[in-house]
């Protein structure tokens, strides 16, 4: 397959890769940019382990051909801490016990951040809906709801 050059911003840095245009954004992040914090759980957009922010929208990077990300602003879990400090949502995940095996956690945090940015004080129903594209098999979600609620409350 012919390769093409694609440029975008990842976690604030401009990146260029030369890859097949249909290569999944997930694989480009993991293999070409060595950003392995974004995980593959199902490869068909069901589990959300590969969720990243693309121009501030939550997307499953396993469903995005890299050419569709051309010129986009991408944020992955590696871009979440600021100035070496954990984001308060990450801190809340630790305190509430929201990360168990941790494989869904990066995607869950991206979903949580996106939810809080568009809805800083979500109701429990809004939290459930905001996370409904991200599957977790360990926690039963309750600890994750609590982490997000704690962040929302602390910002009042």
């Amino acid at each position: 397959m012919a390769e093409c050059s694609v440029s975008f911003t990842v976690n604030g840095r401009i990146q260029s890769v030369t890859v097949p245009p249909m290569k999944r954004l997930l694989d480009v992040l993991r293999e070409d940019l060595n950003l392995t914090g974004t995980k593959e759980g199902c490869g068909e957009g069901e589990c959300g382990a590969c969720a990243v922010l693309l121009n501030d929208e939550l997307v499953n990077s396993c469903l995005v051909p890299v050419r569709d990300a051309s010129g986009a602003r991408i944020c992955t879990i590696e871009g979440v801490p600021a100035a070496g400090q954990l984001h308060r949502l990450q801190q809340a995940f630790i305190e509430a016990g929201a990360a168990q095996c941790g494989i869904c956690t990066p995607g869950m945090i991206m979903a949580g951040l996106q939810l809080l940015s568009r809805c800083p004080h979500p109701t429990l129903e809004e939290i459930r809906e905001g996370l409904s594209g991200n599957l977790c098999r360990c926690t039963g979600y309750m600890r994750i709801f609590e982490a997000i609620q704690n962040v929302a409350q602390s910002s009042e």
Partner: peptide, 9 residues
């Protein structure tokens, strides 16, 4: 290992 898990490392 919480910090490693929430930072994706």
């Amino acid at each position: 290992e919480a910090a490693a898990k929430v930072t994706g490392t």
